[in-house]
Every structure is written in structure tokens, then in C-alpha cells.
Amino acid sequence: MLAKRALSIVGGLAVIGWPFAVWLVISYAELHILLPILALCFVLRLCTLRGKTGALSRAFKGLAIAGAVLSVASIWMREAQLLLWYPVVVNGVMLALFGSSLFSSMSIVERLARLHEGNLPPAGVRYTRRVTQVWCVFFIINGSVSLFTCLAGNVHWWTLWNGMISYLLMGLLFACEWLIRIRVKRRYE
């Protein structure tokens, strides 16, 4: 249990630290030694997800595989610029996950809300569907900017956006949604 928890922490740190590690690898040729470590972090992340089911777990497994593949391809092709594409992949996978759930009986946000709240009133179902739509818009915008930073080839812009600004915007979106959710719940209670 302790080993699995440690692997989970390492995997999480790999995802958060990815932009900075990529910046180091691209900016300093002598740090290409980090590429196998990045690949290993994603393999460890994949190991922590073994046995977990559900759409979100499958998405996280796919992202861990994508991170490992980009790292190994960068080693093999001696082209660290490939690493820049990981945030684009993340946003694409998350958009597909959230967007496809809008065409099912339950959106992904509704599924997550039901884990915490149990049954939801019809207003709660409408609210979670709207939140899912907002996240889809976020992934489109964030993915587009990430794509632009890849194509621009400026590792400083890429690191600023993918290592800081996108995380701040994500946190802001979480915080705003949480505050709105409290107001919506009060109104219907």
C-alpha cells in the first residue's frame, strides 16, 4: 500500500513537473539524461493505474502511455521537441472524454458529482451538464494555446503557458465552479 502511494505521488509529480523538465531538457543539452527518467515516471504512473476501471482511469492510462511514448521517441529520435506535444495530447484526450460524455445519459461531471452527492435533482443534472460544457470550452482554448506554443517553437512561452498559466486558469475555473456550485445548491435546498 505504501509503495503504491509513493508511485502515485511520483506519477503526479511527473505530470506537474513535466513542463519544467521539458524546458530543462530542451534548454540544456547535457540534461538529456532526464529523458529516461521522464519515461520511467510515466511508466510508474501507468503502474499505479493498473486495475482501475472507468472512462477517467482509461484516459489517465492513455495519457501515461502518451507521455512515455513521447519520452522514448525523443530518446530514440534525439529530438526533445517532441516532448512539447504532451499538453496538446492531454487537452485533446480530456476534450474527447468530457465532450463524448455529453452524448451519453450522464456527463462526466454528473458522474463525479454522484460519487460525492448521491442522487441529484433535475437542476443538479442540468448544472453538471453545463459545467461539463464549460470544461470542454476550457480544453479547446487551452489546447489551442498549447498547440500555438508548440508551433511557435519558443520553449519559454511554452513553459510559461503549460507550466504556469494553464494551471492557474484551471485552478481559477475549479474555484469559480465551486463558489457557483455552493450558490446553486443553496438556491435549490
Score class of each variant (00 low, 15 high):
1 M>A: 12
2 L>C: 03
3 A>W: 12
5 R>M: 06
6 A>S: 07
6 A>N: 05
8 S>G: 05
9 I>V: 11
10 V>G: 00
11 G>E: 01
11 G>N: 03
14 A>Y: 08
21 A>H: 09
22 V>T: 08
24 L>W: 14
24 L>F: 10
25 V>H: 08
26 I>P: 08
26 I>H: 04
28 Y>A: 08
28 Y>N: 13
29 A>H: 14
29 A>G: 12
30 E>C: 13
30 E>V: 15
30 E>G: 05
37 I>C: 00
38 L>N: 07
38 L>P: 03
39 A>V: 09
40 L>Q: 07
44 L>H: 02
44 L>V: 12
45 R>F: 02
46 L>I: 09
47 C>P: 02
52 K>Y: 12
54 G>P: 02
56 L>N: 04
57 S>A: 07
57 S>R: 11
59 A>R: 11
61 K>H: 06
62 G>Y: 01
63 L>R: 03
64 A>F: 05
64 A>G: 01
66 A>C: 00
66 A>V: 07
67 G>Q: 02
67 G>E: 01
68 A>M: 10
69 V>M: 00
73 A>M: 08
73 A>P: 02
74 S>C: 00
75 I>N: 01
76 W>Y: 11
80 A>W: 11
80 A>T: 13
81 Q>K: 11
82 L>K: 10
82 L>V: 06
82 L>T: 06
83 L>R: 04
87 P>N: 04
87 P>I: 02
87 P>L: 01
88 V>L: 04
89 V>D: 00
90 V>Y: 09
93 V>T: 05
93 V>S: 00
94 M>F: 15
94 M>C: 01
96 A>S: 08
97 L>F: 05
98 F>S: 01
99 G>A: 04
99 G>K: 09
99 G>H: 08
103 F>S: 06
104 S>Q: 13
105 S>E: 15
105 S>I: 10
106 M>H: 15
107 S>T: 12
108 I>P: 05
110 E>G: 01
111 R>C: 03
112 L>S: 11
113 A>E: 09
115 L>P: 07
116 H>E: 15
117 E>V: 14
117 E>P: 10
117 E>T: 13
117 E>N: 11
118 G>R: 06
119 N>F: 12
120 L>H: 07
120 L>P: 10
120 L>Y: 14
121 P>Q: 14
122 P>Q: 05
124 G>I: 13
125 V>M: 03
129 R>M: 09
131 V>F: 04
132 T>K: 03
133 Q>W: 12
135 W>R: 11
136 C>R: 12
137 V>H: 07
140 I>M: 03
141 I>M: 06
142 N>S: 02
145 V>M: 05
147 L>Q: 06
148 F>M: 10
149 T>F: 00
150 C>T: 14
151 L>H: 11
153 G>A: 01
153 G>L: 09
153 G>I: 09
154 N>E: 05
155 V>T: 07
157 W>K: 07
158 W>N: 02
160 L>H: 11
161 W>M: 03
162 N>H: 04
167 Y>D: 03
168 L>W: 13
168 L>E: 01
169 L>E: 07
170 M>N: 11
173 L>E: 06
174 F>D: 03
174 F>Y: 15
176 C>S: 14
176 C>A: 15
176 C>H: 13
178 W>E: 13
178 W>P: 07
179 L>G: 08
180 I>L: 09
180 I>W: 15
180 I>S: 02
181 R>K: 13
184 V>P: 06
185 K>R: 15
186 R>N: 10
